[in-house]
């Protein structure tokens, strides 16, 4: 029974909570269990799960019912009649999408219908065969996998991507570490990308996508390998970006995600 608070505290630390705060939360949680004359395990369930649940709850907005939706801002991305062909084969055609600042758009559809291709077109890495794309200059892309250098640590990635955006190394690193904390992740100093778990590597990917404070974020199923807690953190982060006036386009196959987005583009339907 005495293991529960220490396991809880350890998990909080792992999630990036400051040591003093983790200690305080662990103490209080035990006391709260004592209020109802029960063990923490009985009241709250397994320590590590409750730690993540608590962090997700604390990061949530004050009251879900009155969450103020910000006025949609200026158009940050617009696709008009966009199509893509590889040789003779049409991947998709006549795609229209307008995303404003403060909005989230989801791209859904079956495997192989061109979701990732469309996202790359939005980024500018792939050219559309037809149609017109307009978008803001500052854009961040988080690919489904890859996109990191296996032999570099998280902080070295921050330095590298920061340099690409014109940031000095010190500022790039502190920004990266700060953004990581919001995903309940404290990057290890010596851990290289190839030694990270799939979920952690995706967190790195996310941080790299937003390091240069882009106005438009393009996310390609970026939560592969996330556990439940990280998945919640991820969506909270998406909504935080949205509420800060940015536009987010996210490729997803989870219907569950669609209830909170502003636009759903179904590529499979066409």
């Amino acid at each position: 029974m005495s293991d529960w608070p220490s396991a809880f505290e350890a998990e909080l630390l792992r999630l990036g909570v400051q040591p003093g705060r983790a200690r305080r939360l662990a103490d209080e949680t035990s006391q709260q269990a004592a209020e109802s004359a029960a063990t923490p395990g009985d009241v709250f369930g397994p320590a590590h799960l409750y730690a993540r649940h608590l962090m997700a709850e604390l990061n949530a907005p004050a009251a879900a019912t009155t969450r103020t939706r910000f006025e949609a801002g200026p158009v940050l991305l617009s696709l008009t009649g966009v199509g893509k062909k590889y040789r003779r084969q049409t991947v998709f055609q006549d795609v229209n999408l307008t995303v404003r600042g403060g909005e989230v758009a989801a791209i859904v559809g079956a495997n192989g219908c061109g979701k990732s291709t469309l996202l790359r077109i939005c980024a500018g890495l792939t050219r559309p065969t037809s149609g017109e794309v307009r978008r803001v200059r500052r854009v961040g892309l988080v690919p489904q996998d890859g996109g990191t250098a296996g032999w570099l640590t998280a902080e070295e990635h921050f330095t590298l991507f920061g340099a690409a955006a014109g940031m000095v190394p010190g500022r790039a690193r502190s920004t990266g570490v700060h953004l990581a904390t919001r995903l309940a992740w404290r990057p290890g100093r010596k851990q290289r990308a190839q030694q990270m778990s799939g979920g952690t590597r995706q967190k790195l990917n996310l941080v790299l996508g937003e390091l240069h404070a882009p106005d438009l974020l393009l996310l390609d199923e970026p939560y592969q390998g996330f556990d439940q807690g990280a998945y919640l953190d991820f969506w909270q982060q998406v909504f935080a970006w949205r509420d800060a006036g940015r536009a987010i386009v996210v490729v997803t196959h989870l219907l569950h995600d669609l209830q909170n987005v502003d636009h759903v583009l179904d590529l499979g339907e066409r």
Binding site: Q32, A33, F44, L54, E57, L58, A62
Partner: peptide, 25 residues
Amino acid sequence: PGGTLYPALLRLEEQGLATPSWGPS
């Protein structure tokens, strides 16, 4: 359940909507 209640209280506290004090029982 406690796992729902206490996080909510803590959140109220952190958002400055409620303020805690310790009392004996």
